[in-house]
Design a binder for these strands. Structure first.
Lengths: 112, 112
DNA sequence: TAGGAATATTCAAGTCAAGGAATATTATTT
DNA sequence: AAATAATATTCCTTGACTTGAATATTCCTA
């Protein structure tokens, strides 16, 4: 099944500090639930719940391996997220200050 | 005063749907509180509150102009955010498929 | 200086999501 | 099959966040 990136859902998922940590952890490679719980000093149930959320928004992917579940990052949402931020490039690349232009606009309106 | 990007705070600020909309709006240029309220069909107090949050995490910048306050995006957090996502590049450039992992495993075993 | 416009703030609900504890589920091993 | 290990789920409580409504503040203008 395909995922469509819902920016708000993705942000909400990432905004929770523990989930953010999980994502950072998984950057180094796939991990099981228990390993994540150990490394982050979290209890297993909470880790499972967070992983469920991350999984539902498509940030993470599971692979069952016998008794365990190995979680890893899905590249796609990070790419799309990256693209979204690219669309803000103009904001830090624009040389002129658009505020000035806007102030001039305001003045025009007030003169009426 | 300088801002240090706190990824979690920034994400939490962006994760709220209306604030996300405000940011998207401001991408087209600076706006006053009233204009934002109009365009998003929100009440002025809520817009002020959301802008306060955005301002506190440094996503947004105010410029008082007479009676009004003109808000615009601050480039820096978007840059840093962009950089953060760059650090995930390997995830979508290297292929960490289960197949690849499997093949890598095979190779290791064969070398012994 | 009084009135009005734009924005900010306060306070009191109502909502939602995270954590804890206990339990269920699934797979493994003996 | 029983015991155990790894993970998922449920229920409940608590705290945080958002909204709405009312009010305060600031600045301009007649």
């Amino acid at each position: 099944m395909g995922y469509i990136l819902d920016m708000k859902e993705t942000l909400q998922a990432l905004a929770e500090p523990n989930r953010f940590h999980i994502v950072e952890l998984l950057r180094n490679g796939p991990l099981t639930v228990g390993e994540i719980a150990d490394q982050l000093n979290l209890r297993q149930p909470q880790v499972s719940k967070h992983l469920k959320v991350l999984s539902e928004v498509g940030l993470v992917q599971v692979q069952p391996e016998a008794n365990r579940r190995i979680y890893k990052l899905r590249p796609q949402p990070f790419q799309e997220f990256h693209n979204w931020l690219d669309s803000f490039r103009q904001i830090w690349e624009e040389r002129f200050d658009s505020l000035d232009a806007y102030l001039q606009e305001l003045q025009k309106k007030e003169k009426k």
